[in-house]
Computed example of a mutant assay.
Amino acid sequence: MKIQTGHGTITLTALLAIYSISMVTSLPGLAISPILGDLKNIFKNASDLELQMLESLPSFIIVPFILLAGRLSLRINKKRILIIGLSIFFGCSVIYPFSNSLWLLLLVSALLGVGAGMVIPFSTGLIADNFTKRYRTRQLGIASAITNISLVFATFLAGVLASINWRYAFLVYCLSGISLLFAFKLNSTPPAVPQSDKHSNDTPVTTNHNWPIALMFLYYFITFIVLTVPFNLSIYMETLKFKDPDISGTFISIFFLAMTIPGLFINNIISWLRGYTNVYSAAAIALGFVLFIVKGGPILLTIGVLLIGIGYGCMQPIIYDKTSTSTTESHATFALALVMAMNYIAIITYPFILEILQEIFSTDASYFPFLLSTILACIFAVFTYLKRNTNTLGMQIQR
């Protein structure tokens, strides 16, 4: 079966291989979350910092290796880099369950970050290589949806496995083995794009640079805003005196599911909203946080979570698409690596920035992060409207 790319076709197997890469990009650190309590009892002499490092260390390591893999893609065969990264990733998934000491778990976590960092740029880079125009936009939307839905599924699976035995939680990383098998089915070189097709869509190409600074900052900023939901929701729910301890987990799952939906219909959404796509997306995020600030009941909070997730889920593939068209074709993977690294930098820096701001304003109230995100999101929504016709925040239809 052949899949249309905008300048030719690729096989269904190759497309599934690209999708499978998106499936594993959300996995690093997931297995640790449901077993932190068990690890405290198992490694009684370990400090809280050491245990937290098991969860955060992959993200720290991922950032430099995303940039390294993106840079290497300019000179080295992308399929080779991808296979090496997936091999490291899968190797760690095999070693993890047999790790009996904390230092070994930390070492494997670091190696997991290396492998993941080498893989992540290609979840979007290979789409930029193989697709063009509206076909690329659609596939980037699907890739974003797969990443987000995999996060929900893998989190659930890790929790189920951890309930059997804490070591089994690490088996969730074995999903990378599927991606590794598919990777061998990829072509060693992307198909040649006819000269007439290069940057021939309706989205204007601004400059042929390697550092999409505006898009990097934009992705960091919107990610920083929405991280308030998964990072602070459980504490916020306690202050509202919700008796069910699992309700925050339910809301977080709804949030990630909401992020998934827009990616599946991104071309339709752009066709409906046209140049106001990012404006409505930013407004949805702002309105979602406003519903948190009013401290409504479960219905309003559910709507708020849905709006935030849908708004972010719309902007994510659009940013990827604009990144791929804002640079030369040969540098698209590197440019996407720079932008995607912002997601992990936001995850790393969010707790520190929030703590600094709480000290400045002398508050540790659970609603402060939501108030901060509400203010930032509202300012951003207004800014997006004022800049709706610019190359970075505007959205023109790709034919």
Rank of each mutant, 00 (worst) to 15 (best):
V119E: 00
I348F: 04
D197F: 11
G304E: 13
I270P: 01
P64G: 01
P212K: 09
H7E: 10
S33H: 08
G70V: 14
D129P: 02
R138C: 03
L105G: 05
I10A: 07
P34D: 03
I83Q: 14
G311L: 10
Q52I: 08
I225F: 12
A283M: 15
I164D: 03
M53N: 08
I66Y: 04
C174S: 14
R167F: 08
L376F: 08
T189P: 00
L111H: 12
T147Y: 10
L287S: 15
I266L: 08
M118G: 07
R274S: 13
A192K: 12
L300P: 04
G313R: 00
T9L: 10
S93Y: 09
W103G: 03
T11V: 06
N148V: 06
G297S: 12
S26Q: 07
L157F: 13
T392E: 11
F289I: 05
I347H: 05
K185M: 15
A346W: 07
I293A: 15
Y350V: 01
G117T: 09
A282S: 14
A162F: 00
P58T: 02
L12C: 03
P97N: 02
I18G: 00
H209L: 12
P34Q: 02
I149M: 15
H199Q: 12
Y350G: 01
S326P: 07
T333Q: 07
Y280M: 11
F217R: 04
L386F: 11
Y344R: 08
G313M: 00
I21E: 06
T328M: 11
F156P: 04
G297I: 08
Y135V: 06
P317C: 03
L15P: 00
L301F: 03
A69P: 13
A284G: 10
Q52N: 15
G394I: 00
T207N: 06
H199M: 08
P97I: 02
N232S: 09
L106E: 05
L181A: 11
I375P: 00
G6I: 08
I318H: 05
M340S: 08
F289D: 10
A14I: 08
T349G: 12
T207I: 05
L357M: 13
L30T: 13
I127V: 12
S150I: 05
Y168E: 09
V160F: 14
P194T: 01
E238I: 01
L257F: 12
L157Y: 01
M395F: 10
F352Y: 14
A183M: 14
I347Q: 09
V193C: 12
V226W: 11
D129I: 02
L140S: 04
Y19C: 06
S93F: 12
F368S: 04
T11E: 04
A183N: 14
H7A: 14
I356R: 06
S150F: 06
I164S: 08
K198I: 15
T392W: 03
L371Y: 15
G91F: 05
S109Q: 09
K387H: 13
A335Q: 01
Q398R: 10
L106F: 06
A214E: 13
I18R: 01
S196R: 04
M395C: 15
H7L: 08
